[in-house]
Each structure stands twice: as C-alpha cells, then as structure tokens.
Deep mutational scan, measured.
Amino acid sequence: MQRVNMIMAESPGLITICLLGYLLSAECTVFLDHENANKILNRPKRYNSGKLEEFVQGNLERECMEEKCSFEEAREVFENTERTTEFWKQYVDGDQCESNPCLNGGSCKDDINSYECWCPFGFEGKNCELDVTCNIKNGRCEQFCKNSADNKVVCSCTEGYRLAENQKSCEPAVPFPCGRVSVSQTSKLTRAETVFPDVDYVNSTEAETILDNITQSTQSFNDFTRVVGGEDAKPGQFPWQVVLNGKVDAFCGGSIVNEKWIVTAAHCVETGVKITVVAGEHNIEETEHTEQKRNVIRIIPHHNYNAAINKYNHDIALLELDEPLVLNSYVTPICIADKEYTNIFLKFGSGYVSGWGRVFHKGRSALVLQYLRVPLVDRATCLRSTKFTIYNNMFCAGFHEGGRDSCQGDSGGPHVTEVEGTSFLTGIISWGEECAMKGKYGIYTKVSRYVNWIKEKTKLT
C-alpha cells in the first residue's frame, strides 16, 4: 500500500490518463441519441435557420407576430419608411378606419389613436360632414345658397324668414311668412316636400332668348283662358290664391305678392273693366268669414305684352289694390325667389296649380277651390304637342294621358313649387288646347323671366 501511494504521488498524470480511459469505455446513459432527441424537440425550422439574422431580410411573422416588435424591426421587413409607417399605425392600436367614419364618399386613412378623412370636392370637416359648395344638395341650405369668396357655403332665406341657429334652416321672422300653410287642420295635408338634388348652379339658368321682337298675326285659340281631375282644397291650404270678379264672377285667378299687390295673367284683364279681388276665398257660393274683398285701382301688364300681336306672350300683369290686405292664416303671400332659384325650383319637376275653373272641358265651374299636382314636361315634348308657338318664356306641365289639367277660369292662378315646406311661385296658368285632352298640356308663363320686374313694381313704400 505504501508503494502504491508513492507511485500516485510521483505520477499524477498517469492516474488522470487511467481515469479518462475508464470513462470513455463506459456506456453513456444520461444523453439520448440524435434521433430520439429530435422526437422530443420537434420544432419547425425557421426561415433563416442556421444563418445569422443580421444578414437576412426581415420576416413579418418572425419579427412582429411571434413577439412584439419595434418600429426598427418592422422597418427591416418593409425596407421602406412609408410602408412601415402605414403598417405601424394599425399594428400599434388597430384600424381606426374600420367603422368607416368618413361621410359623403370620403376616404379614410388610419393613424395612431386617430384617423384622417380625405374629402371629395365640396366637403370638409373631420368626417367630411361639412358642405362647402352650393353645387351639392344646395349646400344643405333649406332655401338659398351662395358661395363666399373663400368658396364656403353661405345660406340665406327669402323675405319674412331668418336663418336658424344651425345656419342652414329657415324659420319665420314674421307672423305670416310667405308660402307657408298655417291653418292647423290643413298642415297635415301639406304636399310632399321637395329635397334639393345635386345641381350645376353655374349652368342652372337656361341660355334662352326671349323672342321679344317676333311679330306674329293673332292666333285663334280655343278655350285658351284655361282644375280638371283635381281635388277639393281645404280652407287655408292655398292662402296665396285669390279669385278675380268682373263682368262675371271667378273669371280668373291670381296670387298675393304682398298686402297691396296681386300677380295674374295679362290676358285676364281689360282696361276700363272694374275688377274686384277676393282673398281668403274657399267656396265661392258661401260666406265663410275668411274672405277679404278689395278693388283694383291700377293694372300693370308687362311692358312687352301686346294682345294685338299675341294674347299669351309675356302673359303676366300686376294688380294694385285700393287697401292693403290683412295677412292671416287664410290670406298669405306666395314666396318669389330670384331668377336663378325660381328656375331651379321649376326644374324640380312638379308643381301645384289651383283655381275655381271648370271641372271638365266646357263644363261647370268649381264651387270649392280645386288643386292638382302636375309634372313638368320637357321642352321637346311640349313643342311636338301643339302647332302653336311655345315661346321661351312659357313652359308645359300636365299629363300625356289627359284627364287632369287646369281649365277655363283658372287662368292667372299660381303654379307653385314647394321647397322644404315653403311654396314659391314658378308659373302662372296661361293657356292650353281644350282641357285635359290626351297628348295636350297646360301652358304656363315662366315666372323666372319676370321676377325682377315683379319685385321692382310691387315694392311697398
């Protein structure tokens, strides 16, 4: 034993070699072989497995989906700052455009905790909710729209109204504003409101030439003092309507412009014939205590009207009353817009006519005020429907199939267009061939041609 100890002390290297040989010859039971080890760690190889990531292109799944990435790591994937920024906006807080917040056709661009709407022409605001041009839906104005110097929408209202708090709607500024039905039992019968379409306001006024200088022999019209197929109006439903009495009662109609003036057809009036105007009328054979009678003290036909040349060209006249009318729910003026808007309103496509005229061709006159909704007829169809001249200051309205029309005794009465609950004068009943005849239409004086003249002559002093 002493000898062994001496050998170990003198030859430590020998001992180490012996131990190493023993270990190498022993069977290893701690580690699995290569094949079995792979069965336990069965993990798919990654895209760049075996390579240094710093030297390969980034992978979106590896960089940002398996674990949260930084902007720089995302930049490695896209290799483009702009594309990385677009991805980053949604990656950080989701897609803010998912709810489609942009209105009126706006395009949404996502941002971090926010979004941006790219608005089409005519709109602005956070969600493109603000109209900035009158060309689109009248700028959301209830009545009139004008573009300011910086191309912003400025709404306005006709006389007797003021802008509401929203700067879009119009509200009454006087007790009985024009064009409004205020009798409670008839307010439910107000005709369907007309909503502004998209309009090209630059070209809204037709490029028409008034044929002022045409000389033409007097034409022989049949029954051209021209509501057939209409309905009984309720008291106060058309408070701007008046009836004219002269040699015979209810020979023509008219509309209240203001307390002192009536507008009617020029062919209705004769110099030297006494005319009485009755406002607030409903049943011409009954006294309903809503009527107001006034005498006409002055007749002003349009300066281009000449019955000797043509009885229905420039067929418009103004009547001055001896005493002002007292405005109330049964006696209310009709609204008159400017030339541009009167023309736009007419193009809405349908209007209402009213009167006490004959209820059928050569038949009896109506006792109760009649009204009828009539569609506008395109000019080409209008011209083809008659052998008589249709001037540019006239328009056609009615039904091709016949059966409904204005008729004798309705002449001078109103053709009105309702705009968001307020009625505007767009025409004056003038003439036609018979009444409600198939293929024939009622012919009306186009008020847009005469609004400046009306307003100039009827100013209240």
Score class of each variant (00 low, 15 high):
F71I: 14
P44L: 10
Y330P: 01
H400R: 14
F196T: 08
E281L: 12
K234L: 09
Y47L: 10
F348Q: 08
R358S: 11
C102W: 01
T276W: 07
K293L: 12
I210G: 14
T264G: 02
C128A: 00
T209V: 12
E270D: 14
V4D: 08
G21D: 03
V419R: 05
G355K: 09
N127S: 07
C69G: 04
S25W: 14
F87C: 04
R298K: 13
T417L: 01
S217N: 13
S25R: 06
L319T: 02
H361R: 13
I262D: 00
Q185K: 11
K152C: 05
K109F: 04
N393L: 02
A192P: 05
W356Y: 14
G349W: 05
V183L: 08
F348I: 08
E98W: 08
R43Y: 04
K339V: 10
Q57M: 07
E82L: 05
E208I: 13
S406Q: 11
D198Y: 07
V326W: 06
K274F: 06
T458M: 03
P414W: 03
E10V: 13
A397E: 01
V195H: 13
E281S: 10
M8D: 08
L244T: 02
V4P: 08
T381N: 14
V174N: 06
R449T: 12
K234Y: 14
D198Q: 14
C108I: 01
F121L: 08
H282D: 04
C407N: 04
K109Q: 10
E420L: 11
T190L: 07
G21K: 03
C141K: 00
T16K: 08
C134H: 03
C170S: 01
E86Q: 15
Q216C: 06
E27P: 03
I7Y: 10
F224M: 13
G432V: 07
N100L: 07
R83H: 15
V326S: 12
R373A: 11
V181N: 05
I15T: 05
C396S: 01
F360D: 15
S114D: 14
R140S: 04
G402F: 14
G351H: 04
K152L: 10
R364D: 14
I336A: 01
I334F: 00
N295H: 14
T422A: 04
I136S: 13
M6K: 11
V368M: 13
T386E: 07
N42Y: 08
L20A: 04
W431T: 08
I299Y: 08
S350E: 15
K234M: 06
V359H: 12
K260E: 03
F360E: 13
C155S: 01
E98T: 13
T133W: 05
H302A: 03
V174H: 06
S49Q: 15
S430R: 03
K362D: 13
E165N: 12
K457V: 09
P239E: 00
G439T: 09
I214K: 12
N36I: 08
S25K: 07
L318K: 00
Q167C: 06
H34L: 06
L23P: 02
D198K: 10
G421F: 03
V248D: 07
H361G: 10
F348V: 13
C18V: 11
N283Q: 09
V242L: 02
R46A: 13
S255F: 01
P235W: 07
H303A: 08
M394F: 09
T225R: 08
E86R: 13
D150E: 10
C396Y: 01
K188A: 12
A233V: 07
N393Q: 05
Q167F: 10
I214D: 07
A265R: 02
S187G: 09
C141E: 01
T417Q: 03
N245S: 10
W118Y: 02
T29I: 14
R46Q: 13
E434H: 13
Y441S: 03
V374T: 06
G105W: 03
Y201F: 14
E73G: 08
D111S: 09
A307I: 08
S448G: 08
A265C: 03
I336V: 10
I334G: 00
D405Y: 12
E10T: 08
F345L: 10
K168V: 09
N104K: 02
G398R: 05
N127E: 04
E82P: 10
K168G: 04
V353N: 02
E320F: 02
E401F: 11
F345M: 08
V242G: 00
N135M: 09
C102K: 01
C178Q: 02
Q241T: 14
K260S: 02
A173V: 12
V228H: 08
L130N: 11
V202Q: 14
G58D: 14
Q237W: 10
E86W: 06
N113P: 04
R298F: 03
G442P: 04
S423D: 03
G58I: 08
K39H: 10
L23A: 05
T417E: 00
M437C: 08
E288W: 05
I40D: 15
S11L: 12
N80Q: 10
I390P: 10
L19I: 11
C28S: 12
